[in-house]
Design a binder for these strands. Structure first.
Lengths: 216, 216
DNA sequence: GCAGAACCTGACCGATCGGTTAACTAGGGT
DNA sequence: ACCCTAGTTAACCGATCGGTCAGGTTCTGC
């Protein structure tokens, strides 16, 4: 089943503490989380079976359900780190004094978030509607609405809201699906980050200007 | 089963030709196509069962499989009109002389396409990767690549390609998921179209300028 | 009246779904 | 030796999956 040689359980090089050198070896739970995330993002939560996750990770379906109470719980554990991170970023932004510097740092933080949690964002963005009721999804939903309301105050125009939506959905798409599909080259990372910064800032700039200063 | 009163088959008001007044009544096949599209776009192709489609449309699963050879064939019939339309738009653009007017008309056509086939685009955009091999998906894939290559010539920068990807994925997201989720108001249609035109043109403008004229 | 096409359906098929249970293995502490 | 815990798995459960099939109903052409 596993690439490892012995027929017993596959990993667990050091049962206590994290390994001294940050080895690339992951715990079984982390392996399963990563595998599940990749499947949820590409095939969808409803379209991914526990058997597929187990096969892809090299375990049995029973093992997946040993580490996670249910499929929904697995989704929850997969998405939670991204939500926590976004919450921190947003809290820091709203508690900072209004100003160009604060806004600039927020956009930087947000782009870091996009790049680090692209699969989680893609999963949420494209499936939140059909997964309403699952606690982690609802929590992420209110967070996104808060993000939207923070950037686009009550009186924001339709165009401002569409700018925000396009930035959010466009980044989620481009960084996952569009990457291996439109940009055949594997992309030089730094170049992507820089280009993303330009375009996202351009999309969000009028919104921010509109909310904190006078129009145009 | 059906909202109609008699227990027999539900619609078929005029068995031959289209009804003289374009009544809102749809043929069974059209009802099923529309229902399936809504489910595919929100829950995903893999996550949507034929039973769900049948229930939502008020028919039996057997009836769905009577009108469509298989689930994949249903997906094909659902997506084909959008692909045909996009193909027409793209052909007209590449066969027209280069120029600002041609580009402007293309963006207009493209926005019409986005608004009319938002569910079809959303379905393709977010699931093409996992549905590779299905003929209609592959056909749409080569079309999108052709669209990308037409707008971004070989030497296009990473930023240009990201602009295109964000415009495409962002519009698909905003017009479907973001609509009932971020913009609580049902949206005044014309306002959405106009805002979309501004933002899409802004995203695509540097690309077009770059490919047909000098930079900036 | 009658044959046939078009339409819709319940019953059924093997496969797979998410999830439960019990059994097994290995290691640590005593 | 002992037990306990953690990890893994096969076997199994009822439900549902996509798909097939035979039969019933209604309409049309003759």
């Amino acid at each position: 089943m596993h690439p490892e040689s012995p027929p017993t359980h596959p990993v667990v090089p050091s049962p206590v503490e994290t390994p001294p050198h940050p080895v690339t070896r992951l715990s079984t739970g982390d392996e399963l989380r990563a595998t599940a995330l990749a499947q949820f993002a590409s095939i969808g939560f409803a379209g991914t079976s526990l058997q597929q996750i187990a096969d892809a990770a090299g375990y049995s379906k029973s093992s997946v359900l040993y580490h996670f109470a249910s499929k929904e719980a697995l989704l929850g554990e997969v998405l939670t780190p991204a939500i926590d991170r976004l919450e921190v970023i947003l809290d820091r932004f709203v508690s900072a004094p209004d100003g160009a510097a604060s806004r600039r740092r927020f956009v930087d933080d947000f782009i870091d978030f996009l790049l680090e949690f692209r699969l989680e964002l893609h999963t949420f963005i494209n499936q939140a509607q059909s997964l309403r009721g699952i606690p982690v999804i609802d929590r992420a939903g209110v967070l996104i609405v808060r993000l939207s309301d923070t950037l686009c105050h009550d009186g924001a125009s339709t165009e401002d809201r569409i700018r925000f939506g396009i930035a959010l959905g466009g980044a989620a798409y481009t960084l996952v699906a569009g990457m291996t599909f439109l940009n055949k080259d594997i992309a030089p990372a730094d170049e992507i980050r820089q280009a993303l910064a330009v375009v996202i800032a351009e999309l969000l700039a009028p919104v921010a200007v509109h909310t904190s200063q006078s129009r145009k």
